[in-house]
Amino acid sequence: MSDHSIQPGLVVRDVSFAYPGGLPVLNRVSLRVAGGEVGAVMGGSGSGKTTLLRLIAGLERPASGRIEIDDLPVCTDRICLKPDHRGVGLVFQEHAVFPHLSVSQNVGFALRKRSSSDRLVSVRRLLSRFQLSDFEDSMPHQLSGGQLQRVAIARALASNPRVMLLDEPFSSLDEDLRESLANMLFPILRERGTATVLVTHDGDDARRFANSLTRLDSRAEPRGADS
């Protein structure tokens, strides 16, 4: 782990955000997660955990602050890269698996520019790692909640993102499933040196899986990274 901690990763510096016409959601939030490490983010409802992930992913633009990935600025006061140019993987709480595509098409979605044979090899490798090989041609409505979440994670991993954002990925799973899914996911992320942000409500999850913890409070008070 110490090897990875020196790798560049994700840096969020003094980021603030408010929805149009609304109260500030984030006020000068800072966060640093090195490559291969997991930074947990906790906070009550409305504290801006998901918003923070959306800002890192490029789905929202911060009012101020700076976001860097592997020492490269992806969002500053002057420029902000679009989500498709950031190399960030995002796993949603509600998995957001595309219902019109099969499992293998979902997992290979980010690899569509590769040749079909190359894509198939990568997809099958991921399906195998997430114990989804038997469901390669299944449609999402034929899968259970745990299987859907594995598909969503495999899909986000397929493009080998530099930063992985996990928005309460285990919240709808029972204890056994979350343990087994975590055991599949985190070793891969460590192996690849991916900086990971894990949003969770669960203190146990944060303690077990994360190297650092950032707490957000719902009053948008200025917070620094705890890590």
Binding site: G58, L59, P83, D84, V88, L90, F109, A110
Partner: peptide
């Protein structure tokens, strides 16, 4: 449609038209 669907698409490399 869920916002998460299009947002997942954006993070997986799709443009707005995509």
């Amino acid at each position: 449609q869920c916002a998460a669907m299009s947002e997942a698409g954006r993070t997986l490399g799709l443009s707005s038209n995509g």
